[in-house]
Design a protein around this nucleic acid. Structure first.
Lengths: 362, 362
DNA sequence: CCCCCAAATGATAGCGTTATCAATATAGTA
DNA sequence: TACTATATTGATAACGCTATCATTTGGGGG
């Protein structure tokens, strides 16, 4: 293919990319016909379509999505914001989204907020510049500006991994699918109490910063109060969660409250770290101390003893979020109430069996 | 702000987005001045700049990156392809990239290939449509079409996580920073042999499909041969790697080769699964069986006993890849030879100490 | 006090596509 | 055979932004 064959720009601006005009030229058709041959094959005769396709292949033509989007007004991008990629929960949420969205023609743009509202705000601002068709957020707590920008943009929003309660005025922003962290906190206490534990602690990271932690702890404390159990034992760390932090949290709690009989960790990674520490110290689980995790990541079922935890349907949440969004994008899905996907307590071997209960699941 | 204040389109095409024209109108300046006030503040007088910024804020204006990119010819996107997000290795590689690239104004677009060349090809095609400034790939093995499209596009490419050897003609595509999987295979065998192990097995997933595995195994086998050790023990699985697969691989290998004294797993997750299985079966590690992992993920140092593994500088690799790419994008960085970041064997407690050696690192 | 240069601002023309509507060709109908 | 409905194809004008070049403004030097 010679340079001469390229369509040339009248002005002096740089010009290098193979454009649809080049393809059309080579196929001896109008650019519009080339565009149609590529995007709406059924509108073009077999012969021209073949010529265009061949020309495109010959020239290694790749359509410019930015230009296409500009012209058609169609959205191209679908940003997804997650707090971190270090928890398999979010990776699996993504997988749920990826099952449907890309094949519907949307490009997922990933951003991680590191649990920071400021970062989230910045990312939302950046991504809104990419003509998104919609946007998928984790959690329902956002900065005022984030909410304003999103509302002003008119872009459909899906908030996942948390549930807006009816009493939270103005929430959710738009679509919402998730589960109640408050109720997780409650349910865990109820479960541990049913197993006969009395000195129950909570241990987590970013306990003040992450609103989900805050609500989980609130549910946890309220349930303790309701059941007449002590409620002052909260292990906190401002580090991002890791096995090492789980270990430290356990050490800290045991140092302060030697009489603890159960600890609920904010995720399985922390719980696993704590369990490793117990192994090292010779603390028997669950005889000396019960441990519960959260999220049911793969490691939970492989630990020795296997970790009792809370299962959340994250892949399913991703799928449902995708479905909701597609329905909205497709047309006539109006405002929807929040969808509660719930959660289950997965009983394994780091807690003793509830009194009057049989094993729920392994 | 009333609808009437919006600049209006002469034709009947849909029109809704707040554009820079709206901002300019409100600030009573030309659109070009508004553009400059936003992008090259120093070129505009204080007064006008203030008016424009205020107007933009009032209108919740968000610039359309696609349009901007189209007009300026500047690249906006920087796609990163990784095989999976389930291994922290790749997440940390990403973190290394994120340290520099976003603040240099580039938007990272993430794609996961699931170790499939076909998926990679498709993703490359999609991403090339996004006017990328560059593109970052994992591995040096790509389909013929992938290579052709990339070359035709003229976009700078960085290949990471693997190293093109001089004898591999035509490789790398462009920039390359990584380490040699072949030499990892060799080094592990040499290390285990130095510890006195004789019956050494390799266990991994996708051992035929993933060229990195293939090369690692080749290095492994060649070293065995060179040292006069048996070389027929390879555990394979076609599942994506997981703790469960690690456990199964261990069971399979032990069933077939009861005399094994050491197993090298293709990653730490597999090794951890195997270790959990040993705990369950009462197999003593390293007395009855030595286990080695690969990648030095966080869990390695927390397992009991702590896992001997191979450390690869993935965050650093990400940083260096970013630096290389920025240098290339910035201007005059020409062709570069592959950069070898190397690897280290991290000696912990799942292998016995090498004869005539002291502990390297904990 | 006039001229020239630099700084600031504005007008215009694309960037690569596609929506829209006009033009042409084909086929079917009366 | 003339005429209209239908299927293809083509020309043109946006989409929202910025590069480029023209115009206006404000001084400093002669």
């Amino acid at each position: 293919m010679s340079k001469a064959e390229l369509s040339k720009s009248p002005t002096g601006r740089k010009r290098q990319r193979i454009t649809i005009a080049d393809v059309a030229l080579r196929a001896r058709v109008a650019t519009m016909t080339a565009s149609r041959a590529l995007n709406r094959p059924e509108m073009v005769s077999d012969e021209l379509r073949a010529r265009v396709l061949q020309a495109a292949e010959d020239l290694n033509y790749i359509p410019d999505r930015a230009a296409g989007g500009l012209a058609s007004g169609a959205g191209l991008a679908l940003p997804v914001l997650v707090p971190t990629l270090h928890h398999s929960v979010y990776v699996q949420l993504l997988e749920g989204l990826e099952e449907t969205l890309p094949e519907a023609g949307y490009q997922l743009l990933l951003g991680s907020t590191e649990y920071s509202r400021e970062k989230e705000e910045k990312l939302v601002e950046v991504f809104l510049g990419w003509r998104p068709s919609g946007i998928i957020l984790s959690g329902i707590d956002h900065s005022e500006r984030t909410a304003r920008l999103l509302r002003a943009s008119g872009v459909p929003v899906v908030e996942t991994m948390d549930l807006a309660e009816p009493e939270q005025a103005g929430l959710p922003l738009d679509l919402n699918i998730g589960f109640s962290h408050y109720r997780v906190g409650e349910a865990v206490v109820e479960y541990l109490a049913a197993c006969g534990y009395r000195q129950i602690a909570y241990a987590g990271t970013l306990t003040e910063l992450d609103p989900r932690s805050v609500r989980r702890i609130r549910g946890f404390q309220n349930a303790l109060k309701r059941l007449g159990l002590p409620h002052h034992q909260i292990g906190r760390s401002d580090q991002p969660s890791s096995l090492a932090v789980g270990r430290d949290l356990l050490s800290g709690l045991l140092a302060e409250h030697p009489t603890l009989d159960a600890v609920f960790f904010a995720n399985d990674e922390l719980a696993a770290g704590a369990l490793f520490e117990c192994q090292r110290r010779g603390i028997k689980v669950p005889e000396d101390l019960a441990i519960m995790g959260f999220a049911d990541e793969e490691i939970a079922s492989h630990l020795n003893p296997a970790l009792t935890t809370v299962r959340i349907p994250r892949r399913e949440m991703g799928r449902l979020a995708a479905d909701l969004l597609l329905a909205r994008l497709g047309g006539q899905l109006g405002p929807q109430p929040p969808v509660d996907v719930g959660f289950d307590i997965v009983q394994r071997a780091t807690t003793r069996l509830p009194i009057n209960a049989t094993q729920e699941r392994v």
